[in-house]
Design a protein around this nucleic acid. Structure first.
Length: 347
DNA sequence: TATACGTGGGT
DNA sequence: TACCCAAGTAT
């Protein structure tokens, strides 16, 4: 066990991926730990999201709100707008809740232990372990998709996920060292992200190649097994893009919960098999030639786009006008930005 | 335990 | 085109 963690840390010393919210292995050895706020922000953004997608958002958030106190004091709409395009918007809502709890109940200082972190909004088992290990060098065990894959291969476990989760977690826990646990946590994930990849793993240059049961059995590239998922259905909908004579756009803030909760969007119908017209006000709505197509995690969506020029005195039953100079399509979730782009081009 | 919840990139 | 996948969490 100790030899495995030691060899991985040796590998990590020379192969750590550079990320703005990290401190280098050399710095960490000198006792320099990263800013817990920056780590927390990065870990929430990285939930089910690639490092490449996160970089610019993390930089933007750190520039807009350099401390957890700044973020806690931010306007909800500003945070949602800044998160637009990154997906899984419940993360942004919980991010704000968490920042405010840290300020009001923890004096603006992030707790350093797993259990306290686990109690905060938007922080689950993975993120609690990641923050305590990476930001505070506590011996917590991170189990993300990378770690699951690495453990399944190392021990040649064929039981499919998610059922195998507990077993894989136990394996990961056994390997977690008391020395440099923060570096170790990042090292296993880096190993999974760069060597022990889902397809075509680079077993030949893996620091654990001589200990890997999956490699010995020849099954490593096929692990972990996963229970098959059903295919995604298609839903239909109608979106209404209204523009007032002074250039203002008719938008709405979506309900706090559910899909795209709390985000800005175009008023529209429900999204289902047979959407009914549901214009936000009476107007000469024109059906545009192009429809917006978008795929969410659990369904495909095809949106019919209706457009109307609206009089200056228009009084919509739903939504509100945003002046042209106050509106940025970048503040829209991607599906809504697609609608905007099509309306802009097709009209 | 199962489902809802985004998006972009890779194959 | 149609999957799969990415440093998961909440319910």
């Amino acid at each position: 066990m100790r030899e495995l963690s030691a060899s991985l840390l040796e590998w990590y010393d020379h192969n750590a991926r550079a990320m703005p919210w990290r401190t280098s292995p050399a710095d960490r050895k000198a006792g320099v730990l990263p800013d817990p706020y920056a780590v927390w922000l990065s870990e929430v953004m990285l939930q089910q999201t690639t490092v490449a997608a996160v970089r610019d958002y993390h930089r933007k958030f750190m520039a807009l709100w350099p401390t957890v106190m700044d973020l806690a004091a931010a306007e909800d709409a500003a945070v949602m707008a800044a998160w637009a395009g990154l997906g899984y918007y419940a993360r942004a809502r919980n991010l704000l809740k968490c920042a405010r709890v840290v300020v009001t109940e923890h004096g603006g200082v992030f707790p350093d232990d797993y259990d306290a972190l686990l109690g905060l909004p938007g922080i689950g088992p993975y993120t609690a372990a990641a923050i305590s290990a990476i930001a505070f060098d506590q011996p917590a065990t991170v189990v993300d998709g990378n770690v699951e894959r690495v453990m399944a291969r190392l021990h040649d476990i064929h039981k499919p996920l998610p059922g195998a989760k507990a077993e894989l977690t136990a394996c990961a826990k056994d390997l977690t060292p008391m020395q440099r646990p923060g570096d170790y946590a990042q090292a296993v994930m880096d190993l999974g992200a760069t060597i022990c990849t889902p397809r075509n793993p680079a077993c030949g240059i893996c620091p654990w190649r001589d200990s890997c049961d999956g490699r010995k059995a020849g099954s490593a590239p096929d692990l972990p097994k996963k229970t098959p998922k059903k295919k995604t259905p298609t839903r239909l909908g109608i979106a209404y893009v209204g523009r007032r004579a002074d250039g203002a756009w008719l938008l709405e803030t979506r309900p706090e919960t559910g899909l795209l909760g709390g985000m800005l969007g175009w008023p529209g119908s429900a999204w289902d098999d047979n959407p009914q017209p549901d214009a936000p006000l009476d107007a000469d709505w024109i059906k545009l030639a192009a429809e917006a197509r978008h795929t969410f995690t659990h369904f495909h969506l095809r949106l019919t786009i209706m457009y109307a020029d609206l009089p200056i005195e228009a009084e919509p039953q739903r939504g509100y006008f945003i002046a042209q100079q106050d509106f940025s399509p970048a503040a829209l979730p991607t599906v809504m930005r697609k609608v905007y782009d099509l309306a802009d081009v097709t009209r």
